[in-house]
Design a protein around this nucleic acid. Sequence first.
DNA 1: ATTTAAATTCATCGCTTGTTGAATTGTCAA
DNA 2: TTGACAATTCAACAAGCGATGAATTTAAAT
Lengths: 228, 228
Amino acid sequence: MPSPPKQVKVGRPRSSDKDKSERGERILNAAEELFALHGYDGVTLRTLANAAGVDVALINYYFGPKQQLFDTVFKRRAKILNEQRLTALQSAQQAAAPEVVSVEKIIEAFLRPLEVAQESDDEGWKNYCALLAYVNNSAVWGPVLMSKHYNDLVDIFVDALRAALPGSDDADLYWCYHYMSGAMSLTFANTGRIDKMSRGLCRSDDFRAAYDRMIPFIAAGFREVCEG
Amino acid sequence: MPSPPKQVKVGRPRSSDKDKSERGERILNAAEELFALHGYDGVTLRTLANAAGVDVALINYYFGPKQQLFDTVFKRRAKILNEQRLTALQSAQQAAAPEVVSVEKIIEAFLRPLEVAQESDDEGWKNYCALLAYVNNSAVWGPVLMSKHYNDLVDIFVDALRAALPGSDDADLYWCYHYMSGAMSLTFANTGRIDKMSRGLCRSDDFRAAYDRMIPFIAAGFREVCEG
DNA sequence: ATTTAAATTCATCGCTTGTTGAATTGTCAA
DNA sequence: TTGACAATTCAACAAGCGATGAATTTAAAT
């Protein structure tokens, strides 16, 4: 019997073919998911092409070589996350004016956008959080990509923390920020580790539980070290 | 002119050849370093063989397939670290008896072996800490390897924390432990991130600075969430 | 002395890798 | 209606992948 008409057509698709468009986005989404799960070297362009329902060569056509694709994937939501964190901080500052905003509110502005993203129905954010943990903890990617896309935000948040914790040493502030960064990336990476560790009592995907406890935890840490 | 006598001999080496022995260890050490830096898929057996000064086939001869090698590398120092943490906790408990040991002392027992290892002249521990961060933050390896090699220790430390923070909820304890785990793995991963972030004010390899601040930070967090 | 086992190198297997050039088809402006 | 350009598939490239069986040399056991 003849195999079904595969209908794989070469050349530019008709613009009426709706699912033939947004292919760039489909590539980015699949890349985000796969990179988050397997890391840079754990993903082959063919696996990725297959997951995105796209020919291998198209990846290079849109995004250039693999490294550039990785950077593009990482940058995409970094931009969004930065904006959301920034506006959250600014509105907290306005609400507190003329007083300086409290440590809790600053940390809330830092974490809330992640929690909202995770609870949203855009599955991509879950993947991005895992990717963030991968990059943040890598000695190869971390100092490059994190610094490139997040350093400006760090400056702003450290400024706010310095104002909220008057007289504190800058080294203390940066170290505490680093602890927060580590706790944040592991927690929102959603690895399933805490599920096993607690034998099902806590669930990795219960971001509300993670978020609610994390704010007092981190805030108390900052206070203890920076104004103790 | 004739090339210099390469002298690559086949067959079992003379036992007098000192540098020909301990080849298994050399493979493990090189694997530890490379896996920590590039992750599981970022390391090829040929690169590894080259770094260890060994033939490719020897890796399989000693450690079986690649996955098994990875597990062996991870397990090696997990065993040591577990023992050191455990004895540190037990001697803290003896020193505090008949009182229960404080939160600070428990966290100290958890972190101190890492700090000591990092400051030691065994370079391998630095690599292992980075590997730990990689595994801990990976959704693929984390729930498997961390649970396999560290869950027993978690139980013991959570027990101690429960005693130090009477009346606290177990979910609170596990979440706080998770935050500690995240802060620990990023901090000791030594990625160089904080150097860039703080523009040289803090240094990734200043483990003493990281350790000294981390204990009050984490302890205050536990207290706030679990007995607040 | 012989035999058995351990430790090593080498050559090779069948597949997979990232990347690219050429061919094909469609759009859109001149 | 033609010509430039955008979007896509296909086929192929050289290089590299993990794994392994065979050959070789030495050590240890009998």
